[in-house]
């Protein structure tokens, strides 16, 4: 019962290329990381990035990763795919709540329902609260974060990158 194999991986600081890619992704959605936050890369068969808002959590994660394989720590920032960093929902929501992310698309209730089912949204009519093209945080009228999308201003199309319906579809 206690014998499941551990997931292997190491935690390390990002290299300059990784840091550039991370910063570029943040810039792409009008986000900035508070100066006192720290990044670590979790190297598995793929690379995930964790952000630490608290030095205590960072210190413990680093300390434990020397002896054991840390499965997860801090805030999930995103992962590298084909060498490029893709922003994750946890960090995007965290920065949105801190008021440090400006690329936001607000959708109505009907659009919210569809988006949370993993669907793309077509024909979003231009309105004041629509962001310019690029990666955006998708919110409803109450300011609840629904997910991340890629918005194309010209066509009004919002491609679903990740949404919170995932928690149900994943089965947890």
């Amino acid at each position: 019962m206690q014998g499941n194999q551990e997931l292997r991986g190491i935690l390390r600081p990002p290299n300059p290329d990784e840091l550039r890619s991370f910063n570029s992704a943040l810039e792409g959605c009008g986000a900035t990381l508070p100066a006192n936050y720290t990044l670590l890369v979790h190297e598995l068969s793929y690379r995930e990035v964790y952000v630490f808002s608290d030095t205590m959590v960072l210190r413990v994660a680093e300390q434990l990763s020397v002896k054991r394989n840390v499965y997860f720590a801090g805030i999930f920032a995103g992962s590298f795919r084909r060498g490029r960093f893709r922003l994750g929902l946890d960090l995007a929501e965290h920065l949105y709540r801190l008021g440090r992310l400006s690329s936001i698309v607000e959708v109505n209730y009907e659009e919210e329902q569809r988006f949370l089912y993993g669907r793309d949204l077509e024909g979003l009519t231009p309105r004041e609260n629509l962001s310019t093209s690029g990666t955006v945080v998708v919110v409803n009228g109450a300011g609840d974060v629904l997910g991340l999308g890629r918005y194309d201003e010209r066509s009004g199309r919002l491609a679903n990158l990740v949404d919170k319906g995932w928690y149900l579809r994943r089965g947890h």
Binding site: N4, E6, L7, S53, D54, M56, V57, V60, A61, L64, R68, N69, V70, Y71, F72, A73, G74, I75, F76, L89, D90, E93, H94, K164, Y167, R170, H172
Partner: peptide
């Protein structure tokens, strides 16, 4: 998944 959903940011998970 639950740590993520609930917005917990001070957790270190060890398997």
């Amino acid at each position: 998944s639950n740590v993520s959903r609930m917005g917990c940011t001070n957790t270190v998970i060890l398997q």
